[in-house]
């Protein structure tokens, strides 16, 4: 299941929803991506723009692809948009499987594809103005290693 939302998410609550009443899940991987400080510049905030409609459509396609490639019993993707501050959560990926390898690999795959295929754009606010974040070649490489 996927959600695109402005509101924060609660990892514990999401885990409970996925696993309630189930005894077949042996491995759960959760990944949370957060807004972090930039180091040399002070990040005041970051705003995530997205393409309503296409974002949901692409996240669903990515989740369906993960389910086709690994034996997942459940999965969850939540991606936030809007203005976020350092320390705020941006994205949540949860994968549930019988064994850890599938859960680890599927979570990694979901993040790699999400970063290069889900239509979100980050603009960073620092003391000196606004800057659009540029796509990174290393993210493309990480996405490409999973094939098409």
């Amino acid at each position: 299941m996927i959600s695109v939302q402005a509101e924060p998410f609660d990892v514990t609550h999401e885990l409970a929803l996925l696993t309630e009443g189930r005894t077949d899940i042996g491995a759960i991987v959760t990944f949370t991506g957060r807004v972090r400080d930039l180091g040399e510049k002070t990040l005041t905030a970051m705003t995530l723009e997205h393409y309503p409609g296409m974002t949901e459509r692409q996240l669903e396609k990515i989740e369906t692809e993960a389910q086709a490639r690994w034996p997942l019993q459940a999965s969850r993707i939540i991606h936030r948009y809007g203005r976020l501050e350092p320390g705020d959560d941006i994205v949540l990926v949860i994968t549930c499987s019988a064994h850890r390898q599938a859960a680890f690999e599927a979570a990694s795959f979901l993040m790699d594809w999400l970063k290069t295929k889900a239509p979100f754009w980050k603009v960073e606010e620092t003391g000196v103005g606004e800057t659009w974040v540029e796509a990174k070649a290393e993210d493309d490489a990480a996405s490409d290693k999973w094939g098409k």
Partner: peptide, 10 residues
């Protein structure tokens, strides 16, 4: 039809 720069979510 939508035009946009390379995406930077996640």
């Amino acid at each position: 039809i939508a035009f946009f720069p390379p995406v930077t979510g996640g």
